[in-house]
């Protein structure tokens, strides 16, 4: 189900998602990290994620501390799975406001990412799936309190996924 929000709010949320997507595409790690809250949960589950995180192994299951480690590792310059950084572009669509709870919006969207895996194979990897964001309105603007990324092929063996998805 979706909920109605006014046109300005919807536009604001869409702009926020497009901004986040661009920072991720361009591996602007610090700027991307500045968009998350201190209590973020960032999750790429196995399959559709119909389990409690931590009870079954996931592709990625970061709290704020682990996400900070992830960003530090990427910024070390020797995170070889992203040296050189993958050129990539993603398309986001089907944006739905799924819930409004106080100062938080739950937002669903579909995405397709074309990643040029330049580190070794030079293949184009296509990543498709659905993201569910919990976006919180803070004094500093909109921030990501949770992001769950369900890949359509998340039951399969996947190639390196060390960029920000």
């Amino acid at each position: 189900m979706t909920v109605q929000v006014d046109a300005d709010t919807r536009r604001e949320i869409e702009d926020f998602l497009y901004h986040e997507a661009r920072l991720a595409d361009e591996s602007r790690y610090e700027e991307w990290e500045a968009l998350v809250t201190d209590d973020i949960h960032y999750w790429v589950p196995y399959g559709s994620g119909d389990y409690e995180p931590g009870t079954r192994v996931s592709f990625l299951n970061d709290n704020r501390t682990r996400l900070a480690t992830r960003i530090r590792q990427l910024m070390s310059g020797v995170r070889y799975s992203q040296v050189p950084k993958s050129p990539m572009r993603r398309m986001i669509s089907n944006i739905q406001i799924l819930d409004v709870d106080g100062d938080e919006y739950t937002v669903g969207s579909n995405f397709v990412i074309y990643e040029h895996a330049v580190q070794a194979t030079n293949d184009i990897h296509t990543w498709a799936g659905r993201a569910t964001h919990r976006i919180r309105r803070t004094d500093d603007g909109l921030r990501i309190a949770a992001k769950k990324v369900e890949l359509v092929n998340a039951t399969e063996a996947l190639p390196n996924l060390t960029f920000i998805i």
Binding site: Y46, V57, F59, A120, T121, E156, A157, P159
Partner: peptide, 10 residues
């Protein structure tokens, strides 16, 4: 019983 995660490698 923690499930498996697969890594594809060329």
């Amino acid at each position: 019983r923690g499930g498996w995660i697969g890594q594809r490698v060329d």
